[in-house]
């Protein structure tokens, strides 16, 4: 698991679109405090926004846990309470959407993060883990 050896430092409840803004803000502030470069922060916070929105819109809400490392990285785990994703491969492909959006979201988050893991079972919710460098 990509978060092995990391320490939990924050936890953000995701139940509405205000929480998506809160998750972005809290992670941007933490990356600023850690001295992250502007482009790295923008890329990772954009990825965070995509997975947080997915949890709220498709996952019936969830929780985002933030992790710190000894090295110059940050990690998150986003766990939702949704129906799960039937085909992860399909969900990660650009242009795929079950709700009429453009479908760049999850695949975009994968491209914008340094490491990306997704676990999902129909009926069992979805867990996304991502790493970003500072």
């Amino acid at each position: 698991m990509i978060l092995d050896g990391a320490r939990e430092v924050d936890r953000i409840e995701l139940s509405g679109d205000r929480d998506v803004v809160r998750a972005r803000r809290r992670i941007a502030d933490r990356m600023d405090a850690l001295g992250a470069r502007a482009l790295r922060k923008t890329r990772f916070v954009t990825a965070v926004s995509e997975v947080a929105r997915n949890a709220v819109v498709h996952g019936g809400g969830g929780v985002m846990t933030v992790y710190a490392f000894k090295s110059a990285r940050i990690g998150i785990e986003c766990r939702d309470r949704g129906p799960g994703i039937a085909s992860i491969e399909q969900a990660l492909s650009d242009g795929f959407s079950t709700t009429g959006s453009m479908g760049h979201g999850l695949g975009g988050a994968k491209r914008l993060s340094d490491a990306f893991e997704i676990d999902s079972r129909p009926g069992g919710g979805t867990v996304v883990r991502m790493l970003g460098s500072l």
Binding site: A38, L39, T42, R43, T46, D94, H104, R111, L112
Partner: peptide
């Protein structure tokens, strides 16, 4: 538009 935002949008395919 901030430069980092422009670069990120292109990576997203937007």
């Amino acid at each position: 538009m901030r430069p980092a935002v422009a670069m990120t949008l292109v990576e997203l395919g937007m």
